[in-house]
Computed example of a mutant assay.
Amino acid sequence: MKLISLNLRFGGQRRTDSILDYLINQNADLLVLGEYKDNENGQKIKETLKKEGYSYETSADDLLGVLVASKHPFSLIKRESRLLGIELSDYNLRVLGVYVPTASKDKKFKDAVWQKILQFAQENKDIPCIITGDFNSCTKEDSMNSTQYNAAELKKLRDIGWIDSWTHYKNDASECYTWYSNIGNGFRFDYAFLSPTLAKELEVVDVRHDSKKREEKMSDHAPLIMEYSF
């Protein structure tokens, strides 16, 4: 199976066609799209994905949220602001798509979203599950200038037993940083975490960041791609 997590950047804007071309050509089983916006471009994204055989759900957001799409049947298990959870009907697998807000706009909101992620992680650690998306968070090890954002929450997630797929299975030819600031500092903000139960069952083929698409300005984030089998 193949999973792609991508921040659309303000819903895609004029880049929507190139984003859709990219996603269709990748032919992934699962898509987690952050900064999804339910506007004209959002409708185009949903209509195109439906034509390509995807079913989808979106988070409970009036502005920027998250869309999760799958080529496999699923049921909805969680819908909140910036969070969308599904369970694949033909697989014993849950997926939580996240788009964590930036603290610069609303620190309390960001902290609240993080607490819901940690609660979900605790409740689902003993079943096969993936938590993935744009976390807008990093430790100093994944920051070009050694600054960190919500590192304590990332540590709690790992302490619960969740596995950072990039750290454990990364493609060594792939760049670490997924987003760069205007002055050129790189940060790894995009993750795919595996529950400890899933990590024992999963054979991960490849985890990589497609930095070329960020450099081409398809988005300001590099897509995270994970290929795996049970």
Score class of each variant (00 low, 15 high):
residue 4 I to W: 04
residue 178 T to S: 10
residue 133 G to D: 00
residue 150 N to K: 11
residue 149 Y to D: 13
residue 157 L to F: 13
residue 42 G to W: 09
residue 230 F to S: 08
residue 43 Q to Y: 12
residue 76 L to D: 02
residue 217 K to I: 06
residue 120 F to H: 04
residue 98 V to I: 10
residue 80 E to A: 14
residue 120 F to N: 02
residue 157 L to C: 08
residue 105 K to E: 12
residue 136 N to V: 05
residue 113 V to L: 03
residue 188 R to N: 02
residue 88 L to T: 08
residue 30 L to P: 05
residue 63 L to M: 12
residue 119 Q to E: 13
residue 30 L to Y: 12
residue 205 V to N: 15
residue 223 P to Q: 04
residue 225 I to R: 00
residue 179 W to N: 14
residue 9 R to Y: 14
residue 175 E to T: 13
residue 116 K to R: 14
residue 96 L to G: 04
residue 3 L to Q: 07
residue 143 S to T: 07
residue 19 I to M: 07
residue 37 K to E: 12
residue 136 N to P: 06
residue 27 N to L: 01
residue 107 K to T: 12
residue 228 Y to F: 15
residue 159 D to A: 06
residue 185 N to S: 11
residue 220 D to C: 10
residue 38 D to A: 07
residue 229 S to P: 06
residue 92 N to T: 12
residue 179 W to E: 08
residue 130 I to N: 07
residue 197 T to R: 15
residue 206 D to I: 04
residue 47 E to G: 00
residue 172 D to G: 01
residue 169 Y to T: 06
residue 224 L to M: 08
residue 80 E to N: 14
residue 123 E to W: 06
residue 16 T to F: 03
residue 17 D to W: 00
residue 205 V to T: 15
residue 158 R to C: 05
residue 43 Q to N: 13
residue 143 S to G: 08
residue 114 W to V: 06
residue 34 G to W: 10
residue 26 Q to S: 13
residue 168 H to E: 15
residue 8 L to N: 01
residue 36 Y to P: 05
residue 95 V to Q: 06
residue 82 R to E: 11
residue 164 D to A: 02
residue 198 L to G: 05
residue 31 L to G: 01
residue 132 T to S: 11
residue 55 S to T: 14
residue 167 T to I: 09
residue 211 S to T: 09
residue 117 I to F: 08
residue 199 A to T: 05
residue 208 R to E: 12
residue 5 S to T: 14
residue 96 L to C: 12
